[in-house]
């Protein structure tokens, strides 16, 4: 009787010690570790790099991230005397039919912007290497004397925990005149 009481007490004390000494990471620590992960890269990839006036070129905006994404706000800038944006659409990085918060093309000012968000909860695991968006451009001016660069002037990505990803590297694309 006394022996079993001693054993029970010892087990109880051990359980209490285990519960109090656990060093569980706080939500903030988890969030910080996600945000401080490796940099996310976004690249503009043209279907081809040599173009002529009148051509329509499809660009895909590829994202390489070590975490899932829930939304993206992308603004492109371009020299409007050479190219015009025909269409700006969603890719597959944010699910099959993401919401569009902004879908704005200003060919006069040489800018185009799209804001997309995944519908439903984000998959919080796994890296992403897919197409965020696609842009269809039409060449309207001769590129004989110049190389045309198309760049991402502003980008904001939101991860699966609904935090802005602070470090995003955006690569520009360069088009040259067809020989």
């Amino acid at each position: 009787m006394r022996y079993s009481f001693t054993v029970l007490t010892a087990i109880l004390v051990a359980v209490l010690l285990m519960l109090t000494c656990q060093d569980a990471p706080s939500d903030q620590e988890i969030r910080a570790s996600v945000i401080e992960g490796s940099t996310v890269t976004v690249s503009l990839l043209p279907a081809r790099s040599e173009v002529a006036v009148g051509d329509k070129i499809l660009f895909s905006i590829q994202v390489y991230a070590n975490r899932s994404l829930s939304a993206a706000d992308i603004e492109l800038s371009f020299a409007s005397q050479y190219v015009q944006v025909v269409a700006f659409g969603a890719g597959d990085a944010l699910g099959p039919s993401p919401l569009r918060g902004i879908d704005h093309i200003d060919n006069g000012a040489g800018s185009a912007r799209i804001a997309l968000a995944r519908v439903g909860p984000s998959d919080i695991t796994g890296p992403v290497e897919s197409t965020l968006a696609t842009v269809m451009l039409e060449i309207v001016g001769s590129l004989a004397d110049t190389n045309l660069s198309l760049s991402i002037s502003q980008i904001e990505l939101v991860d699966g925990k609904y935090n802005i990803i602070s470090e995003v590297i955006a690569n520009q694309a360069v088009l040259t005149s067809e020989q």
């Binding site: 939304a71 919401l99 968000a117 519908v119 439903g120 909860p121 904001e156 939101v158 609904y162 802005i164």
Partner: peptide, 21 residues
């Protein structure tokens, strides 16, 4: 109102009062 709000909105989009999200 920015992209985070759109992301949070997207999470709840299509749900109704009794929906999980």
């Amino acid at each position: 109102v920015n992209i985070i709000d759109l992301a949070l909105f997207g999470r709840a989009f299509g749900t109704s009062e009794r929906g999980r999200y």
